[in-house]
Design a protein around this nucleic acid. Structure first.
Lengths: 157, 157
DNA sequence: AATGAAAATACATAATG
DNA sequence: CATTATGTATTTTCATT
């Protein structure tokens, strides 16, 4: 359960995680000491899970993004869990979703170029016995909305 | 072009964007003053694009995630650009990818429950004239790997 | 829960090697 | 780029409300 002050703190930290506690306090109309307590509590309650730099992937030598839709067979825990662990260990993997539907997983990857993507597909995915089907969607552009607002009054959840 | 020190700074800030400059400097074996300069330069060069809190969406009243694959028609700039602007304004939208393939867009949304998702699909998407086809993939689980490592030596890019 | 004040840290900058 | 020095600002704790 978030009150309106918590919601304001969460909003500000979604937009700028490196804001100083003093400036944050001033934005949400709290004394710095109170603000610090609120932030600690939000972390302790698991509302704030972490703080991360958003990095230009091109600068990291990975300018090309793609989704890889993967069907695995059999779709049992014995196969699913190791597949997830394996995929998350790949340095190309940026995000992994286990989804409902014809496809089982959507893997978002960041690579240097098309040749790198091809190698990843062949050596990293189709070579695995549990991978039954692959479909690749090149990403022309990708926008992440870093700040999600609470649903309902103040996210009474 | 990142050297190994830049790469280390970027890695640390991807893992913890709220680390103090002093602690960051110590982790990457720099003097604080030098470290501060490095971080500023990385921001100025666009390598570090921003810093964001990772928030538990359930706590915001949005525990259900889905991908919505959208085909729009015609796929012209006159239609594409307003569609992107519209979709990014929806409070349910978390991320939007313009992709190659049969589907034109993958929209990641966060909603309260299945009823909310249904309303979003009907009122937010299928009601629009340019939306030719929709396919929804419920997300069972989603993992974002916040730290992407450079490709090659130090991401010589 | 929130506050203000004190004590401990950290930041920002400049000068020097 | 590291170190040092300096003044300023922030963070953090804690007694009080």
């Amino acid at each position: 359960m978030l009150d309106s002050v918590d919601a304001a703190i969460v909003r500000e930290l979604q937009n700028d995680a490196r804001i100083s506690n003093k400036d944050l306090a001033s934005k949400v109309n709290l004394a710095p000491s109170t603000c610090l307590e609120r932030v600690r509590s939000l972390k302790a309650r698991g509302v704030l899970r972490g703080f991360h730099a958003d990095v230009d992937l091109g600068s990291l030598g990975r300018p090309l993004l793609a989704f890889i839709a993967v069907r695995i067979r059999p779709h049992t825990r014995e196969v699913v869990d190791p597949f997830i662990a394996y995929t998350l260990k790949l340095p190309e993997t940026v995000a992994l979703s286990h989804v409902a539907g014809p496809d089982d997983f959507l893997v978002q990857v960041a690579v240097r170029d098309a040749a790198h993507l091809q190698r990843l597909l062949l050596d990293g995915f189709t070579s695995r016995r549990e991978v039954a089907h692959l479909q690749t969607h090149l990403i022309f552009s990708h926008v992440h909305k870093w700040a999600t607002e609470p649903y309902g009054p103040y996210g009474l959840e």
